[in-house]
Amino acid sequence: MTRLPVKKTYKLFVGGAFPRSESGRTYEAEGQNVARASRKDVRDAVRAARAAQPAWGGATAYNRGQVLYRLAEMVESRVPEFAELCGGRDEVERAIDRVVWYAGWADKLPQVLGGANPVAGPYFNFTVPEPTGVVAVLAPDASPLLGLVTRLLPPLVGGNAVVAVASETRPLAAIELAEAIATSDLPGGVVNLLTGFRSELAPVLGAHMDVNAFDIGPSNGAAAELETLAAENVKRVVHGNPDGQSPWEIAAYLELKTVWHPIGQ
C-alpha cells in the first residue's frame, strides 16, 4: 500500500509567522490552494515590516551580510524542493549565487555609494547611504524564484524591510522561500510575503502612507495608476529589472544622508 503524503497548506508569511489570510480566502495556483491576501493582510504586513526595520537597518553591515549569506545556505539545503517549483536546478543555483553576491555588498555600500565631501570651509562633511524604510515589491512572474530573489535582495541588503507580493500565477516558490527565510537568521518581519491577486494588492500598497518605496516592476498597464497613488506620500517608485544584478539596484532603496561638523580647536 502506498503511503498518502501529507500536503502542505500554503500560507502567507507576515512578521515571521505563517498566517492564513485574515479574509479566509484562497485561490488555486499551480494546483494548490494558496492564500489570497486582503487589504488587511497588506496592512498587517506593512506594520510588521515597519516594526522590524529599525533593528535590521541598525544591525551592523557585517551582520546583515552574514544573515543574508545564511539565507543562501538555507536555500542551498533545499535545492531539490525549489527546483520543482521554478525553472529547475539552474534557476535555483543562480538564485543562490545572487543571494551570495548581494550578501557581500552589505559592508561595501557606504564606501562605494558614499564618502567624504571636500567642502570649501572648515567642516568635515560625509555622505552615507541609509535604508529608505519599508519597501513594497511586486515580484515578477517569470522565473518565480530567481525573479523574486532578484527584487528582494537589493532592498534587503541595504537595511530595508520588505513587503513582497509573489507572482500571482506561480506563488509556490515564494512560499518555499519564506520557509527558508524563516529558518535563516533574518528577523521576523524583515521580509513579508503575500500571495494573492496583484490587481487587488498593488493599489493598496501604492496608496499605503507608511510604505517608502515601491518596486512596481517593468512598466506595464498598471504603472500610471500605481504611480499616481504613490505620489500621495512621495514614494520612490522603482521599475525593477527582473534579472538585474548591480549595486545600483540597491541604491534605488537607499537615501543619502550628508552630515556636517565644524573643524575647530
Binding site: N117, V119, G121, Y123, N125, T127, W260
Partner: peptide, 12 residues
C-alpha cells in the same frame, strides 16, 4: 551638527 544652513557644491 554644531552648525546650520551650510551648502557646498560637493555636498549632496
Amino acid at each position: 551638527a554644531n552648525t546650520y544652513n551650510r551648502f557646498d557644491p560637493t555636498s549632496p
